[in-house]
Amino acid sequence: MNYRQEKNQMKAVLMTGAGGPEMLQLADIAEPNIVKPTELKVRLKAAGINPIDTKVRSNGLFYPDALPAVLGCDGAGVVDEVGADVLNFKPGDEVWFCNGGLGREPGNYAEFTVLDSRWVAPKPKSLSFVEAAALPLVLITAWGALFDRGGLQDGQTVLVHAGAGGVGHVAIQLAKLKGAEVITTVSSESKADFVLSLGADQAIDYRQCNFAERVNELTGGRGAEVVLDTVGPEVFKDSIEATAHFGSLVTLLDPGALNWSEARMRNLKIGFELMLTPMLRNLDSARDKHVGILNRCAEFIESGNLRGVVGHCLSLDQAAEAHRLIGEGHTQGKIVLEII
């Protein structure tokens, strides 16, 4: 379906209030325009769905008085126009990026978006727009958690929780590219098969056993030098005993109130990874870092050593259904909206 109706109008999915998926409504709105010389306008071909989208929809935007708003941090598309100071992109270039969708800058559940060109990277040629839109946020998150926060090194063991999920499935691959031994947790036999196909060395079905005990069994009692928690407080707490002494325990979430005595006894380094911080705090210096990660991952993708998995591809007018699917938590890989 072609959503374009008339000049200067576009279709977009608007968040009309905080609440359930029904708060997402397809609407006709004005196309955004370039207002700064460093901006470019992108005709979006696909938008990735991430858990942060559903949290913002449920709990409200990060900025007051921003409703209605277009959600979606991940986007891929074709450059339509460029500002006067944009030298590294031109109309027709295919790009991918993670920007907007939190209530201040427009997100990517739309036909067009305008953003600063310094957040944008050339799309890997071997990827479709749908595949590309699935990856920026999870690649930047996994990279930051494993390498910047966790300090993962060749020959170490890493435990990746929820390895079949969005961040988990790329974290497994990035860790293997680093030369690490990868253990991951899953909730089904099919997910175990999936993560093993991505290169994981061991898959632990956490429904069948105590994952911390199993990690220690697999490592001869040592534990994993790096643990990546993508799930939440209970998993974070239980992961302390799965982390090697002097190791790193990194979480994407708030671990809540804890007794830190065992973590202290183990001399653990505790890390937090929130890749949205540069957007939320206007940290322009982080732009180059994020784009650098995307460019480095593009090299891995083009060489066939890294891939993203799209579990569901839906149309723009199915954004509410996409949010319902991600809320169920049973998908493998990512959910993407294709914008035709």
Results as ranks from 00 to 15, higher is better:
Asn99Trp: 13
Ala171Ser: 14
Ala244Met: 07
Ser187Glu: 08
Val138Thr: 11
Gly155Cys: 11
Ala180His: 02
Val186Ile: 14
Glu181Pro: 00
Val195Cys: 06
Lys125Gly: 13
His245Gly: 00
Asp229Cys: 08
Gln153Trp: 00
Lys191Glu: 07
Ala212Tyr: 11
Gly100Tyr: 11
Leu115His: 12
Gln156Trp: 02
Gly103Lys: 11
Phe112Glu: 05
Gly144Phe: 03
Arg207Ile: 00
Ala192Pro: 10
Gln173Asn: 09
Val186Lys: 06
Thr219His: 10
Ile240Lys: 09
Gln153Asp: 06
Gln153Arg: 15
Ala162Val: 02
Arg207Tyr: 11
Leu196Thr: 14
Lys178Trp: 02
Asp205Arg: 08
Ala192Ile: 05
Leu159Cys: 04
Cys209Ser: 15
Gly223Trp: 08
Glu111Pro: 01
Val182Ser: 02
Ala200Cys: 10
Ala121Ile: 12
Val226Phe: 08
Val195Lys: 04
Gly179Met: 05
Ala133Gln: 09
Gly232Glu: 13
Gln208Trp: 01
Thr243Ile: 08
Val186Gly: 07
Lys237Ala: 15
Pro233Tyr: 12
Ala171Trp: 05
Lys178Asn: 13
Arg104Thr: 10
Ala171Phe: 04
Gly151Gln: 04
Val170Arg: 01
Thr243Phe: 06
Gly150Lys: 05
Ile183Tyr: 00
Phe211Thr: 09
Val167Gln: 04
Glu105Trp: 12
Gln156Pro: 10
Asp201Lys: 04
Gly155Arg: 02
Ala134Arg: 10
Leu228Glu: 03
Asp154Gln: 14
Asp154Glu: 15
Gly165Glu: 09
Thr113Cys: 13
Ser188Asn: 08
Glu189Lys: 14
Val235Met: 15
His245Lys: 13
Lys237Asn: 14
Trp143Leu: 00
Lys123Cys: 10
Leu102Phe: 15
Val231Tyr: 02
Leu174Lys: 01
Val170Thr: 12
Ile140Lys: 05
Phe211Ala: 11
Leu198Asp: 09
Ala203Cys: 03
Arg214His: 01
Gly144Cys: 01
Gly220Val: 06
Glu105Thr: 11
Glu213Tyr: 07
Gly103Glu: 09
Ser190Met: 07
Asn99Gln: 13
Val227Ser: 10
Ile172Met: 05
Gly144Val: 02
Thr230Ala: 08
Ser239Gly: 12
Ile183Cys: 06
Gln173Cys: 08
Val227Arg: 05
Lys178Met: 07
Val231Glu: 08
Gly232Val: 09
Pro122Ser: 12
Glu111Cys: 06
Leu127Ala: 06
Gly166Lys: 07
Glu189Ala: 15
Gly232Asp: 12
Ala180Asn: 03
Gln202Met: 07
Glu225Asp: 13
Gly223Tyr: 11
Asp205Glu: 09
